[in-house]
Simulated scan of single mutants.
Amino acid sequence: MNSKHPAVLLALACWAGGAGAAQPREVRDGETMEAAIAADAPTRVRLEGQRIVNVVGNIHSTSNCDSAPPAGNAPLAPSQLAAPAVNPRGDVILNCDLDKGEIYVRPAATGHAGQMRPISLFVSSPRATYTLLLRPAQMPADSLVLRDRRSEAGEPAAKAARPQTTSHVRALKTMLASMAQGRPADGVRAQQFDVAQALWREAEFRLIRRQEGRALQGETYRLRNTSAATMVLAEQEFDQDGVLAVAIEQHTLPPGATTLVHVIRQQEDTP
């Protein structure tokens, strides 16, 4: 496992939520927020408590973004990095909802998700600009709700809550490290399995190990790409009720390749 996975863990520890609902994502001006989006369907993006007024990126084409906005509201003005109305090298198709100050994004590439590049966008509100790195994945259409905590509670409140969050994330990182190494930490009980799990038609998914600690339970799965196309994986595809964090060792799988997927949940019965 390479060094980027603890960062993935930290992000999901803060953002994990129920599957099938809008994905809440914490954002800050000047920092990059990563998320998975549907490869073949639009994804709604909105700013909680704010309007999106500008979008900058390698945009393929836009729709409903140049109309006059409602009276008294600032226009949503997408800025393309290429001059033509349709940029054949663009990464994303952008649709604007001027009434609500929201956008819908859809990868412009065609074919399998493995052929799609990550999409970089700069999304601006009247107060800040947020950097988004969106990774197309085989998942249902969803919504991204961007939350700037500093604009809600102010910096002092955020700092006051940090010690508890840091302790929680440290426990998650310790569990993840023991899962990646295949060696349980002190006080953690480990069991080996080889049990097939339902996932996607294009993949074989097997539970191979479970580790149980005082408050956390970690499950390690082996995923094999059984399709004829390259598969691109995202942690959000494994986010379900009760899941605290997910880490994937290899995000891009050629046909026949395998990777380990580590899932951490809260123990249902803690001593």
Rank of each mutant, 00 (worst) to 15 (best):
L223G: 01
T110V: 06
P107Q: 11
L233A: 02
A245S: 15
V169R: 12
I264N: 03
L81R: 11
L94V: 09
A38W: 02
V261I: 10
R106D: 02
G30F: 03
K173M: 10
M116C: 06
R44Q: 04
G154E: 07
G30M: 01
K159S: 15
G111M: 12
E204S: 11
A247R: 08
G20P: 01
L133Y: 05
P140Y: 04
D186Y: 07
A161S: 13
T129Q: 02
A245W: 13
L121P: 06
T62E: 12
P6M: 07
F238V: 01
P78V: 03
A7S: 11
E102F: 03
I264C: 09
E155P: 09
L233R: 01
V195R: 09
N73K: 14
Q266E: 15
T230W: 06
A38Y: 01
T174K: 13
A85T: 13
P69R: 00
P69V: 02
H262P: 09
P107F: 11
G154A: 08
E237S: 11
N87L: 12
D186H: 03
A128M: 05
L121M: 12
P163R: 05
V188G: 10
D66T: 10
A108T: 03
C14W: 12
L199S: 03
G101S: 08
L134C: 08
G18L: 04
E212S: 15
P271T: 12
P78L: 04
A74S: 14
A41G: 00
H112P: 13
N95G: 15
S125E: 01
N225H: 07
I248C: 05
E212K: 14
Q236I: 02
L144D: 00
R209Q: 04
E102P: 06
R189N: 04
D142K: 11
G49W: 06
E249T: 14
